[in-house]
């Protein structure tokens, strides 16, 4: 692990603090003075000790443009989630089980582990696909209804919409 400069540490500390504070408020569901003060201390302590761990993002993530894309991503994601569920419902309820499963792979351009994780989770939750493994940049995907086995076409089919937005958020 490369050593961090003081500024990086500070930035991480504060962003951790911010996120954990939000989580704390959600846990306590209260803006009572005592709860908030306790939360400030507890989250400060935890974020201090998790400086080397919690590395998902820097303050860049709070830029308005990125937040806009995040919301956009969320909307697309929810649409795909509902679509995928209807798809599952159709397949499960049809007596003949209309499935044609197989495993395909494609290469992703995403840089960090976190963005890959978000992509993989999205793939898992969207129609007919399940991410099985990631080796470096290659995603292995179990596809319930294989349309193509070509990596390029699979990429267009499965991941392109998400990845475009993710690249805007994370890079």
């Amino acid at each position: 692990m490369k050593s961090l400069t003081f500024n990086e540490k500070l930035a991480r500390f504060f962003i951790n603090w911010l996120f954990l504070m939000i989580v704390w408020i959600a846990f306590t569901t209260s803006f009572n003075k005592q709860e908030v003060i306790a939360g400030v201390f507890v989250t400060m302590l935890i974020s201090f000790f998790s400086i080397p761990l919690f590395t998902c993002c820097t303050f860049k993530i709070l830029a308005p443009k990125r937040i806009f894309y995040m919301v956009y991503y969320l909307l697309i994601f929810i649409r795909e989630l509902i679509k995928s569920n209807l798809d599952v419902a159709r397949r499960v309820l049809t007596p003949s089980l209309p499935i044609n499963p197989g495993i395909v792979k494609f290469k992703s351009k995403l840089p960090t582990d976190y963005s890959k994780m978000v992509l993989a989770n999205s793939i898992t939750l969207t129609p007919g696909t399940l991410s099985i493994d990631i080796i470096d940049d290659t995603f292995y995907i179990h596809w319930i209804d294989v349309k193509t086995t070509d990596p390029e076409e699979a990429y267009t089919e499965i991941a392109e919409t998400f990845e475009k937005i993710l690249l805007k958020i994370f890079v």
Binding site: L81, S84, N85, V88, R91, V92, I99, P101, T124, L125, G128, T129, L130, H142, I144
Partner: peptide, 8 residues
């Protein structure tokens, strides 16, 4: 396939 259906 079970994972697919189950998770989603």
């Amino acid at each position: 396939n079970r994972l697919q259906a189950g998770t989603k």
